[in-house]
Every structure is written in C-alpha cells, then in structure tokens.
Design a protein around this nucleic acid. Structure first.
Length: 584
RNA sequence: GCCCCGGUAGCUCAGUGGAUAGAGCGGCCGCCUCCUAAGCGGCAGGUCGUCGGUUCGACUCCGGCCCGGGGCGCCA
C-alpha cells in the first residue's frame, strides 16, 4: 500500500517539467504512515526536501506534485498541510483490497523483494566448542535466526552457517582438560591446571572416552608433569604452564592426542547442535575451521594478497597492509614461526564465502569483536572483494535478573548459566521473544520472573493470547452453527466501518512495511513492537464489538478481519521462531 | 590515549531530518448476565546526558564535554 503511494509520487515527479522538480533524479519518495489520523493515512515530505535544492516554496511544490499525481481510485483525497506535507487519505476500498490480499497470500503475505535474486550467508553463534552454550549465545541464536528469516522474507536467498572453531589453542586446552580427567579415571592423581576447563561436562566426556577406549591413553602422572614450568598457584604463568602441558600431551600421546581432542569436540558440538535444534535454530552447514587449511583456502587467500601486492615482510613475518583499507594498523598474516594467524583464517573464511557466490556476508558477532570488523573488511578489499559485501551486526551483552537481582554469571557459581537451563526454566517462546525484544546494540536485561509469569505483564502471553483468542472465536462460531464463511466475509468487507475496524485494517496492512524495514535494518525488535501493537488493536476490537452477530454478512466480514489478523500474527511470530497457539 | 555501543516518563525501552516525542510495566480511577479479565477504557508522569553548530525544521546530522558498558595482541 505504501509502495503504491511511493509509486504515484515518483510518477508525479517524473511527469513534472524539468524546471520544477524534474531534472536531477528525485530522492526516495519518503512516504510514511501518518501518526495522526487527522493527517490522513500516509504522508509524504518530498516537497520540503526538494524545496531546498530547487529554491522553491515547499507548499507550491507540493501543489505541483499533487496536480501531477496519476489518478487512482484507491485515494480518496490528498491535502497539503503544515510546512508542505502531502497527506493521502485512502478510500475504504483500498483497505478492503489489501485485506483480500492477506487472505489470498496467506503465509506469504508481507513478503518483499528487496533481496530478490541475491544470496546471503548469515553466520551466527559460532561459539567455540569448548563447553555448553550459555545465555549470551542464546541471544546470538535468537537474533541471528530472526535476521535470517527476515532477509528470506524480504526476497533474499539465505544460507545459515555456524563456524566451528575446531582448531587452535582453546581446543587444545579442552583436549588437555579431558585427558587429565581421563587420567584420574585411570587412577592417577593429578593437579588440575589453573587455565583448564573445569566444568562437570569435561568429566563426563572423559568417562565416555574411558568407557570406550579403556586405558589406551594412560600415561603415568610423573611422566606427564615432569619438568613443566610452574602453574599460577605456585607463582608461575598459567598460560605458559598450559601450553607446556599441551606440548607434553601431544608428545606422549602422539596420534592419540587427536582422538582425545575429537572426543571432546564431537561431544560438545553434538550438545550444542541439540540445544540449538531444541531452540528452533537450524543451520544449513557447520563449517569447520580446520577445513580452511585442509581445503587450501588459507593458501588461496594469502596468494591473493600477494598477487594484489598488499603484503610486506617485517621481523620475519608476513603482514597485510591493512591501513591501506581503513584499518587502524597493519596485521600479521603469517607469523615469524611460519604459522598462519587467526586473522588469516578469518579472511580465508570470508574469501571462501565469496567464492561460494554469496553477495551478502552477514556476520553476527559479540560486541567484544568490534575491532575485528575493520580488519576483515580490509582483508576482503585487499583480496579484491567488495568491502561492503560484509555486514556485521554486534550483539551487546545479556544480564539475567531474578527477582530484581542480577544473577552472577561465573562458571563457578551454582546459578545456571547455560542456554539449556534457561530454556527449561522460561520456555522457548519466552526466550526467543525476550532475546530479540531489544535492539541488538542495547544491553539486554533478561528478567526471568517476567519471562515466566503468566500475566499480562508478559508480552509473550499478550501476543500469543491475541492469536489464541481469534482461534477461540472461530471455534465458538462453529459450535453455534455459524461457521466462518470466507466468501461471504470477503464480499462484505464494506460493512467494516467502526473506528476499531479501521484501526485493525491499518495495523494488519503495515506488515509488509515492517518486514521491509526490519530486514533492511536487521532489526527483529521492530517485529516485536509491531506484534504488540497489532495484538493491542485486536484486544481493543474484541472488547468493543461482538463478532458472532446474527447478521451473517456482518459476522463473516468481522471474522474475515480477525482471520486476517490471525494470519499476520502467525506470520510475524514465525519470523521470530515463536509459536502461535490455537488455545491457551 | 584511540575505537565501538548506550544515556529519552519512577523502571525497562521504541522512535528511516519532519507536524503536538511514544509503548509496556509501576501509580491512581473505572469495566465481566456478554465470543477466554492471560483482556479493555481513562488520568498523572519529559529541559530527549550536557554545551555549541548545520538546517525552513534536530531525539535524529556534525563537533566538544560528562556518565555507564565493551574493545584495542605475531591470543583464540
């Protein structure tokens, strides 16, 4: 509907003679919903914008535009108001036509075309598989999944991906931690390193490994610890200590280290997969970091950098001249010891995404990764890829509140911190909605009591209740022998003239605009706000007028209206991964 | 020191340069003989952190400052 107005305004501008508003290509028509119904249904501020460059009187310009508007019988009238707004008043037929569209399109109502013909890869969560997901990852999962759904709803072809950090030091530490717990099961007495992973799940992994493999990886404790530097509690450095311990493990176990390593990786990754699956978050691919090296992507990335002449050698290392591409400092790609850096893997991964043919590389990262953005973009550009193909959204932190008190999130504390526990406590629906209720660059205070409460304070229930209430009305109607007759209802929409009914039509028909905007700004919280407003319009309507009336035409028209509302509520909830219950 | 995010009603937060800045919660006053009161209606509540600038017009854009959070490795 908004598109229609924008089209009409664009046509009007194109029709105007060059001296007035013609000539330079006009800016976007800037049509928006009027806030105040006294200002009509839609408002356009283009005349005021153009007035500046044209040195014309905005109201006079608005008058010219209005006169050049193509005739359209869905527009009742236009007005020029205030400093130069053009206000559009739609005919009842315009709203009715849009309702017909809702019924005809069903699940696809609201879908846009902004991304048509383009492919996006959304990478999110990508938590290191060193332990179960915690509540912070939950926000990444909910946000990333919703953004992916939004892009898809706006025409993009979307691929969802989890980058598995299955290489690197953190994973070596995990493997060493598992091995030490395993040695305990073999009867050895060990001192657990300060920097090791202490979680109970490590013991479980060790137990399974021991159950499967017996004492195959047993080494005596004195052979393991002999000659190692001091650990932190003894006045040493915990990083040096753990690195020495890892080196020793690799030396003693040889190929067996990989077996222990994979036991930890596989177990934890399976847990993460299962958790996300249970949360309604699915991925098309779990991309292995190791495969970058194996598949030659890192080599290709470095070759590209060399070919483009953007690298130099200094202190025995190979550097990317990232400062040529907007980064604040140059970055090492190959270390002095010949190993490639993590940064090399990052740009190789992003190059690989481009090689797979994605137009938009959509990354969802923690706010603590913000320094990474300029770096990776610089890398892409240095490899000859467009820097603006990368779009990164940063997620601020989550704080849990229970009964007004902040829940401390240390791994040591007995308080739960895992996503799985959160889901068990508040349910998937509340978790999914609460996680995306706030803008991603706003810190999130997650109120556990509120999320659990079965009251009108809780937006989850408020919204779902609207959906269930509509289903209940339809059920009631059928039970009274007056089932909804869609054909009759759609033929009688002209009977819907009450203020609440007009408000319902205005709200329902905003959905395509919400998708477009929420998708463009990667802002699923907009959908939550919209859902609340649509639900509010429905609850007000419900209280104001009866639906199941004797007059069949009126009854079916009203039912057609609330069925359209149910459709849009369902479509919007679906984007957020929240269920739309038939009864509550 | 440099970079990123935030500062809007008592609280939690919306607000693509446009008209009189909004919502939910909390507070106060009302509404079930009626399709689910998990609901609805009304009232009160604001120097949009602060000081300048750009503009016909600034919560929105630019600069300075103040406050809160995060980040700045040949770590991962």
């Amino acid at each position: 509907m908004k598109n229609l107005i924008e089209k009409l305004v664009s046509d009007a501008l194109a029709a105007l003679p060059p001296g007035t508003a013609g000539g330079a290509p006009p800016p976007a028509p800037e049509v928006e919903r009027s806030r105040d119904t006294a200002h009509g249904d839609f408002a356009c501020s283009i005349a005021m914008r153009l007035a500046k460059s044209l040195r014309a009187n905005p109201r006079a310009l608005a008058q010219q535009i209005v006169q050049a508007l193509p005739k359209n019988d869905l527009i009742e009238k236009t007005e020029i108001a205030g400093p130069g707004f053009i206000n559009f008043f739609m005919t009842p037929a315009a709203w009715q036509a849009e309702l017909l569209r809702v019924h005809a399109a069903g699940r696809t109502y609201g879908r846009g075309m902004s991304g048509a013909g383009r492919r996006a890869i959304v990478e999110f969560v990508s938590a290191n598989p060193t332990g179960p997901l915690h509540v912070g990852h939950g926000r990444h999962a909910a946000y990333g999944a919703s953004v992916a759904n939004l892009l898809e709803a706006d025409g993009w072809s979307v691929h969802r991906e989890y980058y598995v950090n299955d290489a690197g030091r953190q994973m070596d530490i995990l493997a060493a931690s598992v091995w030490l717990r395993y040695l305990e099961l073999c009867g050895e007495t060990i001192r657990f390193p300060a920097n090791g992973y202490r979680g109970e799940y490590i013991r479980q992994i060790a137990a399974e490994l021991h159950g499967r493999q017996g004492d195959a990886f047993h080494k005596p404790a004195n052979a393991v610890f002999a000659g190692l530097p001091l650990d932190e509690p003894d006045g040493g450095d915990k990083d040096q200590y753990i690195d020495a311990l890892i080196a020793r493990a690799k030396e003693l176990l040889d190929a067996g280290f990989r077996t222990v390593f994979d036991a930890g990786l596989d177990e934890i990754l399976a847990d993460i997969r299962d958790d996300l699956e249970g949360f309604g978050v699915r991925f098309d691919r779990w991309f292995s970091e190791r495969s970058l090296g194996d598949g030659g992507a890192i080599g290709r990335a470095i070759a590209r950098l060399r070919a483009q002449g953007h690298v130099f050698e200094k202190d025995g290392a190979l550097w990317l001249r990232a400062t040529d591409f907007g980064d604040e400092k140059d970055r090492v790609v190959v270390r002095e010891n010949g190993q490639t850096t993590y940064f090399a893997s990052d740009i190789a991964y992003h190059l690989e995404k481009r090689e797979r043919g994605f137009d938009l590389l959509q990354d969802i990262l923690g706010a603590d990764h913000h320094g990474y953005v300029a770096r990776v973009r610089a890398g892409l550009m240095a490899m000859g890829e467009p820097g603006d193909s990368l779009d990164v959204r940063l997620i601020q932190f989550v704080s849990l509140f229970r009964a007004g008190d902040k829940v401390q999130m240390s791994t040591r504390s007995g308080e739960f911190v895992t996503l799985r526990d959160l889901r068990a406590e508040v349910g998937n629906d509340a978790a999914r909605l609460f996680y995306v209720m706030r803008s991603n660059d706003q810190h999130l205070d997650f109120d556990l009591e509120l999320a659990k409460s079965r009251s009108n304070d809780n937006p989850v229930y408020y919204i779902q209740y609207a959906h269930a209430r509509i289903a209940s009305v339809l059920k009631q109607a059928a039970e009274r022998g007056l089932p909804f007759d869609r054909e009759s209802g759609l033929a009688s929409l002209a009977l819907l003239a009450d203020p609440q009914e007009r408000e319902m039509m205005r709200e329902i028909t905003r959905w395509p605009e919400i998708i477009q905007q929420a998708s463009e700004f990667r802002a699923p919280h907009t959908v939550v706000h919209y859902l609340r407003e649509l639900a509010a319009a429905f609850h007000a309507y419900y209280n104001a007028l009866p639906f199941i009336v004797d007059d069949g035409a009126l009854r079916n028209a009203r039912l057609a209206l609330i069925v359209a509302a149910r459709q849009v509520l369902g479509n919007a909830l679906d984007i957020l991964g929240v269920s739309a219950p038939e009864s509550m």
